[in-house]
Design a protein around this nucleic acid. Structure first.
Lengths: 208, 208
DNA sequence: TATCTTTACGACCGATCGGTCTTATTCATA
DNA sequence: TATGAATAAGACCGATCGGTCGTAAAGATA
């Protein structure tokens, strides 16, 4: 690495590989991610990849972190730009749906696919995915709690169920959107209606 | 084949293979389904499988039909035993959650996994999966419509959104249950509350 | 009993899988 | 400018992939 902050050759390669890996894994699955295909797509040698990661598993873990960074940038950050409370909570839901609709990844969503792929399996990769999954839930939960504390959601709000509903709508939106070209509209409407029901001041939210 | 209805040797093999194939595919994915592993698990030769199906794709299609039959028996039929209306609709949701909780398949749910696996891909297998997906939605929609027509759900009920919510709860239950040992309780509670809100006679439904 | 189809097996095929090893080049630093 | 680490390529490895082929039982039918 150079003493200043410039990207050296290897680091540039690393980023390019991980970009392609996230895209490829969103299609073929994180397990189905093939080093041969990845190398071919990037026009580098397969063995060259092993100069950066010792094994496929290590590359998978790096791919997860990379996808997590993209998610933070593309989905979480825009939502955090909204004022704290029910508006920020709904913004997070909306930017998630946007992410799917924008077709950012050919396979829909890296994390949703990976989670379903590794259901019931154990190992460091599934473990890491489970942790990321929990983080996402905790973020939703935090935003919901803040909305209650700000007095923008009625005091008795069952936060656990609300978080479940919002997340469920997102997952189902992805599935239906890609499968039968429906989903995001319903997911938006359903959550919006739910939040307006719970909001102390419904005018904070869009009209629908 | 014999003239009477008995299962001949080949048919028995076929059933045994498809049982194992559904289980294996629910773990490894329908694409990741390996003929070698399948043959090994059943203690038959790999080439023997080709006496029954001409290609892997044909076996995949047969596996889908087999899983569809299991779903019809284990999930749909029990629900249809309930009286038509809001009770039958909720029973379908419950028997679906039961199916997951019972851990009938090691990988959670054959269809949910397969759908996510084939998101964004095309071919006869994804096409068939999409059709089965649509059938499921149509069933939910029919039961919901019947509940409205029976006067058990308020007339203005937005059926499309209700179906989306129920299905979303099911998918999320599966995902969260297997990943973080939570889900089915929320999925049951959330849908039950929603249906009680919409029901003209809430006493038709459980207390929660 | 003789015949024909169904069912199953073992040997084998080319392609691809993840991974190793040796060698060559690039590049920051001393 | 010399040096050593980082980066990359190519040849190669055993294992497994989906799939083919020839052959041998098993079972139904005549």
């Amino acid at each position: 690495m150079t003493t200043d902050g410039r990207l050296v050759r290897g680091e540039r390669t690393r980023t390019a590989v991980l970009d392609a890996a996230v895209a490829l894994a969103s299609e073929a699955g994180l397990g189905g991610l093939s080093l041969g295909q990845l190398a071919e797509r990037l026009e580098v040698s397969k063995s060259g990849l092993f100069a950066h990661w010792k094994s496929k598993e290590e590359l998978q873990l790096a791919t997860i972190e990379h996808a997590r960074g993209q998610w933070a940038t593309d989905v979480v950050s825009p939502a955090l730009a909204q004022p704290r409370g029910v508006r920020r909570l709904f913004a997070l839901h909306e930017s998630r749906l946007d992410f799917y609709t924008r077709k950012a990844l050919p396979g829909g969503c890296f994390f949703a696919n990976a989670k379903f792929e590794f259901i019931g399996r154990s190992g460091v990769v599934p473990d890491r995915l489970a942790t990321v999954h929990l983080e996402w839930f905790e973020l939703l939960e935090r935003l919901a709690r803040e909305a209650v504390e700000a007095g923008e959601l009625v005091p008795g709000t069952h936060i656990e169920d609300l978080v479940f509903e919002i997340d469920a709508a997102g997952v189902a939106a992805l599935l239906n959107f890609r499968l039968v070209a429906r989903g995001p509209q319903e997911a938006r409407r359903v959550v919006l209606r739910r939040l307006r029901d719970l909001a102390t001041d419904p005018t904070l939210l869009p009209e629908e």
